[in-house]
Design a protein around this nucleic acid. Structure first.
Lengths: 152, 152
DNA sequence: ACCCTCCGTGGACGCGATCGACCGGAGCCT
DNA sequence: AGGCTCCGGTCGATCGCGTCCACGGAGGGT
């Protein structure tokens, strides 16, 4: 993870479809060298995936909600997690410090679907309560932040 | 936005670096046809960007926090937004229904940096109070959900 | 029936991806 | 110091892909 790797990561966070030749030009190496570096970044887990970012409304997911989950004292956290994992509407799942063990970001098409999702969440064993906030608009999301050279 | 467009979007959400030739094979069209369709999806705003998804720890961003913001009654929402936009640590910003006008997802390297961020947020004009939750672990994030054919 | 438009195919050509061979510097052992 | 080895790079060649262009068929309007 030297300065060149950091540049590559930053370039690919900005545009995942850059060609190796273009990356090579930007960082001042040859294309095969860049190819090898990117391969290593992928297999070492630094780069996890390349994703197209899609306007959610365009694919029928106009409603975004953030849902806090309070666990039952008796519940098994892993089971709860597994249940959440089965619900495709839950795009992100954070295990949190605080009273609410989980914070979920969910996207659905309509408020009715959100209602159904919340009901399902409330009913899952191990869930004591839920608290839902609706996003009226998304100002920005997953904006990549510039990489500043770490202490190492 | 027909079935083929939806397939293309879904394929690119799974792997943004698929070649046009590969996409063409998957959807049963020629490469130039796919090229044109993807170009239209981009320029019509359905596809907003292609991003490499990076392990945050690997680039020195090991701390994730979700921060709710309550606005001053007198404040100007747009000004507050603009201030938030200048803070690179804020990766996502949702305008919410409820007491807390904004929900921010922020990533920083250390708890000390989070503290500084919270201080800056609290001090920005128009912000009445903040409420911060720390993510102990990210179970998953921005998982693409399968597209089911919309009513249209 | 005719034409127009849209959206696709096929062909061609230049560039990019990718492999293998080679090279130079760093670190280490003798 | 000399030489070995390893790592990570360049160079060159080959093959497939991206991309431009001309052409063609389907569908709708007149």
């Amino acid at each position: 993870m030297d300065a060149i790797d950091r540049s590559l990561v930053e370039l690919l966070r900005g545009n995942a479809r850059l060609s190796y030749a273009e990356l090579a030009r930007q960082v001042g190496l040859s294309a095969p060298a860049v190819h090898e570096r990117v391969g290593k970044l992928e297999s070492s887990g630094v780069i996890r995936a390349y994703r197209a970012e899609v306007e959610p409304e365009a694919i029928g997911l106009g409603v975004t909600a953030l849902i806090g989950i309070v666990e039952d004292s008796g519940g098994d956290t892993d089971d709860v997690l597994e249940t959440f994992r089965q619900m495709p509407e839950i795009e992100s799942c954070y295990f949190m410090a605080g009273v609410e063990s989980f914070l979920l970001k969910a996207r659905v098409g309509t408020i009715a679907e959100l209602e159904q999702l919340i009901v399902r969440l409330s009913r899952t064993p191990g869930v004591a309560s839920t608290r839902t906030g609706i996003a009226l608009s998304t100002k920005w999301e997953n904006r990549p932040q510039p990489i500043d050279p770490p202490a190492s």
